[in-house]
Write a protein that binds this DNA or RNA. Structure first.
Lengths: 207, 207
DNA sequence: ATTATTCATGTTCGATTGAACAGTAGCTTG
DNA sequence: CAAGCTACTGTTCAATCGAACATGAATAAT
């Protein structure tokens, strides 16, 4: 795969750098200037060599028409906003506000359709330990109605928590995946804010 | 944020579409043709409007110099190759071959430095349940020597497994985070293939 | 020794392209 | 009703830019 000459690697690296910084591919003359070539043809030849080796793709005649193959092959990436840990009284409006950061991940590995409204919450406490969720885990949820057995972020009697949703003859209620926590049967109402579709854990110094 | 007119949204959508398909921003004349404008100025004005509203960034005079702001703000994204589940006798060479797919995730949320050599493995079995890892979880590992307490993929007596690394007076050994599994004390040697730095779980129909 | 490849210079050509200028029309706001 | 914004048309200009051609030199492969 890496049968590139030193110069070609340098040019490729410069291309990646440009696209990360400016979102834009450089023109042949910009490449020329960056490497101190006396001729623009030198840059053009390197681009042609990289294209021949399949590392980049170009479109004849068009300006700055350089795309890095590895980034095109990549699956679509979704940006998921992270709202703090689960807070009481979190409504639709509140979701828009308390943005804490972003997670970007490719759509395929988390198995979600583009267009789905997503958000993420950080797990607090150990009430879902039985479902292998622990303090600090980042749960990605989709805003849609939940089915029995789903892990959901739900608003129950004015407070929002992450629990497993159970629907049976007794109606809908929430079950903590930890024997030390009680089942939650709604007094007034239960509204599902989102259904867990994926999870990301970051291991710091110690897991 | 979304104080865009209908046309402006359409143009923005077209820009995103172009960059996803070709990795390239369209020229004003391509925008003109796509929307059936009779004048190229119409496209240019829409770009100017989008820039004024902060949705895109442009560079005066340069061809196709359109970058979508939300994608520039995004953190660097790393591509991690996924090798199947943990197989026996997996060496450096084997790593290069049995590629199964790719995970793309932003570098910040998994907390890893760019340049680190990364790979991912799918967890098989329940020997690490105590560390909240379960069947099907995708563990992201960095190729570097492990420290005591790290969860590592290690080659021990010719077989590779995912376990917690413990280094004490008795030397280095592996500990399963599940009381039903034995501790692994190496007979011949123990070589750490990678240290767990993050984990991604995908929830299918049922979690 | 010959050939191919890489890396480079110097120049020219024509197409692509952003930008500017001069208008027209509809629609909303004060 | 004037002012301002959106949404265009039609035209011109000059800078940008890819591409081609001629040429040369160093290195690796055959």
């Amino acid at each position: 795969m890496n049968n590139l000459t030193r110069r070609q690697s340098q040019v490729l690296e410069y291309l990646e750098q440009c696209q990360e910084r400016t979102g834009l591919a450089p023109s042949t003359r910009e490449i020329q200037e960056h490497f101190g070539f006396a001729s623009q043809t030198a840059a053009l030849n390197h681009l042609r060599a990289l294209e021949r080796k399949g590392v980049i793709r170009r479109q004849a005649g068009k300006a700055r028409a350089v795309a890095i193959a590895s980034q095109l092959r990549r699956e679509q990436i979704v940006d998921v906003p992270v709202y703090g840990s689960i807070a009481a009284g979190m409504g639709e409006a509140a979701l828009e506000q308390e943005e804490e950061g972003m997670v970007s991940i490719d759509a395929v590995t988390v198995g979600l359709s583009r267009g789905a409204r997503l958000f993420a919450l950080r797990v607090r406490g150990d009430s879902m330990e039985g479902a292998h969720l622990t303090e600090g885990d980042l749960v990605i949820l989709e805003q849609r109605p939940g089915r029995s057995g789903d892990i959901v972020a739900a608003l129950i009697d004015g407070e929002t928590t992450l629990k497993r949703l159970v629907v049976d003859r007794a109606g809908a209620w929430l079950k903590a995946e930890n024997p030390r926590y009680p089942q939650l049967h709604p007094m007034e109402g239960l509204s599902v804010q989102g259904v867990m579709v994926a999870m990301v854990r970051r291991c710091g110094v110690a897991a």
